[in-house]
């Protein structure tokens, strides 16, 4: 997480990954067994199905210091529970539209389908996403919201941040210690 960095060190993003027990978690296991290397910036959580993913989990992760969230489930048509991954897709699409209003670049939350056989592909997607998030810089959401005057809604543009608020966390600010405004609205 960005909190792990010391000011002089380059930014290492932290990405939380929500995975499905039947496909993407297993793909991650497969990548491990096959010793396929990928960026250590991702930390995975196992769910039984990507359909279990409540969008507030994502916002919670971002509020507590994650710089990005990866969602991974079975390919459409291959869901272990018939078609719950389509609910994931719907929730993801909804969230994509909300994120800019919350001051978060949409690329910070990504959905990647990965079957149990796609260890290489998942590793590749993780690498790609980590690099994208690295390019975006630290999220540091609470500080951003504070800098934006606590405003929420369309008035807060994801690119319209005051220049000073994007880089380092404010001295003494502890990630996740404050609830971001608007999340539980």
């Amino acid at each position: 997480m960005s909190g792990e960095q010391v000011a002089s060190e380059p930014f290492e993003p932290v990405v939380i990954g929500f995975t499905c027990n039947w496909c993407s978690y297993r793909a991650a296991d497969l990548a491990g067994t096959a010793r396929i290397k990928y960026a250590p910036n991702v930390r995975l959580i196992r769910l039984m199905c990507s359909g279990r993913l409540d969008p507030t989990f994502i916002l919670d992760a971002l509020a507590r210091g994650a710089d990005g969230v990866l969602i991974s489930g079975c390919h459409p048509g291959e869901c272990h529970y018939v078609d719950q991954n389509l609910n994931t897709l719907r929730r993801f699409r909804m969230l994509e539209r909300i994120l800019p209003a919350l001051g978060i670049e949409p690329q910070r939350v990504q959905l990647v389908w990965a079957s149990a056989a796609e260890g290489t592909q998942l590793a590749h997607e993780i690498d790609r996403m980590v690099e994208e998030v690295r390019g975006l810089g630290p999220l540091d959401w609470p500080a951003r919201m504070a800098a934006a005057g606590g405003r929420t809604g369309p008035g807060v543009s994801p690119v319209g941040w005051p220049a000073g608020s994007r880089g380092e966390p404010e001295p003494g600010a502890i990630k996740g210690a404050t609830e971001p405004p608007g999340v539980h609205a």
């Binding site: 909190g3 960095q5 930390r43 959580i45 279990r52 507590r64 210690a177």
Partner: peptide, 23 residues
Amino acid sequence: ILAQVEGLLLANLQGTAGREAVS
């Protein structure tokens, strides 16, 4: 799940002790 997220982000390590630990 939320507790695991908190733990993964080391957000459970409140205060200076936590910051020292993570860096």
